[in-house]
Design a protein around this nucleic acid. Structure first.
Lengths: 105, 105
DNA sequence: TATATCTATCGTAATTTCACGATATAAAAA
DNA sequence: TTTTTATATCGTGAAATTACGATAGATATA
């Protein structure tokens, strides 16, 4: 019998978690977040000096972290200072925690 | 001065975490892991019934979770039962925890 | 005003991801 | 043995990701 199909739509929370996870899904972005998390903020220049990739590549990674909401950039001409977005960071932390604790998302 | 450049290579742990995060970076895969985490194991058939995507698509997602080491499949002909890989799951949990606690990776 | 500095964006090429239907495989059931 | 069932794999196309150098923009500094 082809009866009732329980199509369980992906929940909003699952989508949010996936979005955060995707943003964390590259070693360079992990490294950036690690640095920001240890010293709260830092200048783009510091990142491009430390991370062995082209500046444009690092800009791109910063952009995807920004689009995921995990970081924000503050313009301090001519430099740009990046910081964690504390609210999103904490939301992400909570969502991952719930996942691993098998709380219903 | 173009002096010493502190190329801080991405660490092994950052790579492992990125690998896990990437595997978590899709809503369907989060949903699958959520189910497996709540009931420990389940049959592929249950997933394909519940998740509104083609069976081949779900197989693909299961494959990427398997390749990331997060799950394993046990053949129980003609069905296949998927379970979390407990070791990897716990390693991932620890790595995410460390990230958010800003422990050095 | 002209120049230097810092960063973002553009254009591009190679690769990967995502979704699908069709096909293949392997074991149970008829 | 043939058929059914359950799942994986193949082939495909569209879209996204990743890396780069070149270019552009905005603000200090000379």
């Amino acid at each position: 019998m082809e009866g009732i199909v329980n199509n369980v739509e992906v929940s909003i929370m699952e989508k949010r978690l996936a979005k955060y996870a995707k943003a964390l899904g590259h070693p360079v972005r992990i490294q950036i977040l690690n640095i920001l998390n240890q010293q709260s903020c830092c200048f783009n220049g510091y990142l491009t000096e430390i991370i062995p990739f082209a500046k444009s590549t690092i800009s791109q990674h910063l952009k995807s972290l920004k689009e995921a909401g995990l970081i924000q950039g503050e313009i301090m001409p001519p430099k740009i200072r990046y910081c964690l977005n504390k609210d999103s960071w904490e939301e992400a932390q909570q969502l991952f925690k719930n996942l691993f604790n098998s709380q219903k998302l």
